[in-house]
Every structure is written in C-alpha cells, then in structure tokens.
Amino acid sequence: MPLRRENVFSRQTVVKTTMLLSVVFFFALFSGEASAQKRFSKNYPAGQNVRLRLMNRTGTVTVIGWNKAQINISAELEAPAANIVPQNLSGLIDINLLRDNQDREIGSVNFTIRVPYTAMVDIETRIGNLSVTNITSALVRAHITSEGAITLTNIEATNVAAENTIGDIFFDGTIREGGTYRFSSSKGSIALRIPFNASFKMMATAPSTRNISLGSFANADTNYLGDGRRVLGKFNGGSATITVTNQRGTIAFLGR
C-alpha cells in the first residue's frame, strides 16, 4: 500500500509540475513578445488648421489625411521601446522622440498618423521612410537627415519641401499659384508628377548625371545651363517656384 500511494503521489506531482512549467513557458513567451514590440495609440480632437510636427529617430512615418476633425496617432515600437509623449499645444500636435528619449537607446518606431486633410504636416526623421498622402493645406514638409524614401501623393499644398541624402523622392500633386516647392537629394531619383497646366518656373540641377527629363514639359521656354547640368524653365506664366536638386541622381517631370 505505501508503495502504491507513492506512485500516485509521484504521478500527481509530475502533472502539477508540467502544468506549472507550461504556464511559466507561455508567460515568458508572451511577455518576451510584448517587450520586443509595443504599440502606442492616442487620439486628439483637432480643428481644420491643426499642425502636426513629428521628429522621429529611426523608423517609418506614414501620414494620411482623412475627413475627420481628429488626429489619430498609432505607433509600433521596437525594443528598447521609446517614450512617446505627444504635446497638444493650441493647434499644434508635437511629437519629438529625440526630446523624449535623450541619452537613451531606443528601437525603431513606425508611426501611422491620421490627420484632418487640411492639416499642416511637418515630419522629420534621422533614418527611415516618410510618406504623406491626401493633404490639402499650406505646408507639407518631409525631411530625412540620412537615408530613406519620401513619398508625397495627392498633395495640394502651397509650400512643399522634401529633403534626404540617400533615397528616392516622389511627389504627385497639384501646384498652387505662388507656391514654393523644393526637392533635394544627394543620391536617388526625384520624380515629380504634376498637372500639365500648372503655372510655375523651375530650376532643376543634376550636376553629376545631367539626367533631367522634362517629359511633356519640354518646350521652348527652357534653358540648359552648365553643359546640361541645370535646366531653367517657365511654364504657363511661371506663378509657382519649383527647385529640384539631385547631386548624384536623376530628375524627372511627369505630366498628369
């Protein structure tokens, strides 16, 4: 009898131990995943003239205009997770990961931000892709200190600026009268898709490749300078100003 009781006890112990180990294993597994990638989400009420200012360190940023008086910020944070402390300053939503994470190592943060389509957008990152779409406002600015692609689609803004060092830049939007549009890269391709009837004067400079394609905009009002390294042009009255500089890449104008 004592031997039988010992066997039963031993079997129960094994079952309990197995269950306990399973719980510990799954807890460890899920907690590990949680520390590897976290999510951040926050909503702010916003007026039509709201301005979004974002300074990221590493990661992608996607800004989408929508027909709501609200700003929705969502982010996926890789470990070590960054602190994100947006500030709502009377018409300005300010997110600055450099300020919020000074002197601490952080992982990439991938933002998806929805803003009223009339919002002014000013986004910047050190490394990573930037994308802005569906914006009709006074300002769209996208700046990458080092490398990453910039994609600006369905943009109707008076002032547009896109700058990076390595990476492609693509702009698809309208050109407003009197507007200022500046695109600059050191290495990559820059492509601008703008309406045929847009009124603008243009200066495109590609000193290294001399590859400046005007497409359907090539007409008699263009002037090639410096052995083709720079093209000046004036189209439909020349109301807006477009400046494109690509140190070691190509420039292309596409009509739409």
Binding site: S146, E147, I166, S186, K187, P207, S208, L225, G226, R229
Partner: peptide, 29 residues
C-alpha cells in the same frame, strides 16, 4: 547609415573641389 551618407556627401565634395581646382570660374560647381 551615418557612414554611408557621409561617404556620399564626401564624394560630391571631392568631385566639386576637383572641378573647381581646374576651373575656378565654374559657378555652378
């Protein structure tokens, strides 16, 4: 990333410096 980007910029600096040493009047460079 920093090293890659700095190298691209340095290449451009070198190119323009070479052009200007041959033709100081090249205002575009």
């Amino acid at each position: 990333a920093f090293d890659r980007n700095l190298q691209v910029i340095e290449e451009s600096v070198k190119d323009y410096t070479t052009i200007l040493s041959q033709d100081p009047e090249d205002e575009l460079s």
